[in-house]
């Protein structure tokens, strides 16, 4: 099963790349686009033999041990 993990900077932390993307889009005429923030997406294959609980536990441990720095980031498993 293909798992997608969305990682974003916590909302209270300034995400400067998003600000620049926003300025650039505005210069292209997308004036109504606002509050843009950039994050990252990690895709992982996991064996179908794992049940949902096992899968979710493994992903959580991997996120906490390496993939996500919870001081500055939060994550969401997309499926």
């Amino acid at each position: 099963m293909r798992i997608k993990i969305l990682i974003r900077l916590k909302s209270q932390i300034l995400e400067p790349q998003g600000k620049v993307i926003e300025q650039s889009l505005k210069s292209l005429g997308f004036e109504e686009f606002s509050n843009i923030r950039q994050g990252k997406l990690i895709e992982i294959d996991l064996p179908d033999s794992l049940n949902e609980k096992e899968r979710s536990e493994k992903i959580d441990v991997a996120c906490k041990r390496l993939l996500v720095n919870e001081i500055i980031e939060e994550y969401e498993v997309l499926g």
């Binding site: 900077l9 932390i13 300034l14 400067p16 790349q17 620049v20 720095n69 001081i71 500055i72």
Partner: peptide, 17 residues
């Protein structure tokens, strides 16, 4: 050191990018 957890906090991208 912050990633190990031996020091508090984190170093994020410079404000100026």
């Amino acid at each position: 050191l912050t990633e190990i957890g031996l020091l508090k906090g984190a170093l994020i991208q410079n404000k100026s990018i």
